[in-house]
Design a protein around this nucleic acid. Structure first.
Lengths: 177, 177
DNA sequence: GTACTATCATAGGATGTCCAACGATGGGAA
DNA sequence: TTCCCATCGTTGGACATCCTATGATAGTAC
């Protein structure tokens, strides 16, 4: 009769009666760590926001048997000229460790969404090449994510742009580009 | 002679000659997905910012044999009245799945930083209780993180507050509190 | 008072991330 | 040419996260 936890638990069952990050910040201040309190709150907020968004995204991708990590890899190939890129280039662009690329390509290959092909001149290098099924699935996943998450991320349009500007600076200073 | 990759690889070796997220946004626009482009950029930026911050934090915690997940759990106990909380409460406060709590407490217990003790009245429940070593290590880790990350997260003070306000709204609307 | 349902913690499995180490290949220096 | 070192991808291991399912206990409904 009542709502319960029909399908996805998704951790979100529990709404706290207060903001846990604001609470942590008050404790930081009370501890005498005032100069770090605001930064602690910001870092923790980013961690939590990432977790929330990732859960929303993965929930949308579940029927398609994709995750955000593999979706990002597919889209990188979709936007590449030949639908194929060296694994090392994929790692640089997605900013993940080489072993993460190997792992993701392993799964995508098992799903028939990607193929490993040799590099034309460098025998050390392998290319991940999109299959027709991979391209099709990537576009279907984009349509769904655009509608359900990206078009309405839970922020006002001007907040979205403010966030983009601030985080662009953070990424730049961290040496991303 | 040159810099190279002395100790930590940390993925960060590769600085791209352009902003990969701005590039993705341009492609979204070109694809006709304009209404979702800004949100896609924001979501991706949050993902990347989280990854960068987590790497900085875990790098600082490595000598202490801690990770951010276990550090957060320890600090939650430090700030609790009795230095002990039910595992279910820990899960609610940290917003993670019950199995993640079990896993983290397992490791902390193996490290001698936490003890499992029975709940006084509810025999289903177990409490994670801080040991003296756990409390001491949590404070040492806080000192280090305050100095190296939280006090200087890579953002101007007013950006930190803007971020906090925007992400507080996001978390609230997602049902966190 | 008994039966149903909810809650608590856990086990097992999947995924993604990192690190350390390895074999194969490429390229530059002596 | 030969040697040294960088680069590329992979394997194996650690950690964190989620999901599904399970057993034990608590609380409620009849």
């Amino acid at each position: 009769m009542d709502v319960g936890d029909e399908q996805g638990v998704l951790v979100s069952e529990t709404a706290l009666p207060f903001d846990p990050i604001a609470e942590a910040r008050r404790r930081w201040e009370a501890q005498g760590w005032s100069s770090a309190a605001a930064g602690m709150a910001a870092v923790t907020s980013i961690m939590r926001a990432q977790q929330l968004l990732l859960q929303r995204i993965d929930e949308q991708l579940r029927d398609l048997e994709l995750t955000f990590a593999r979706y990002e890899l597919l889209m990188l190939l979709v936007f590449s000229q030949r639908g194929a890129l060296p694994l090392s280039v994929i790692g640089s662009r997605l900013q993940v460790h080489p072993t993460s690329v190997t792992s993701a390509v392993d799964r995508l290959e098992r799903q028939g969404l990607v193929r490993r092909v040799p590099h034309p001149t460098d025998r050390r290098t392998k290319l991940a090449e999109l299959t027709p099924a991979g391209r099709e699935l990537a576009l279907a996943a984009s349509a769904r994510l655009n509608d359900t998450v990206f078009a309405e991320p839970g922020l006002a349009p001007e907040e979205v742009e403010t966030l983009n500007a601030i985080l662009r600076g953070l990424r730049h200073r961290a040496g991303d580009f």
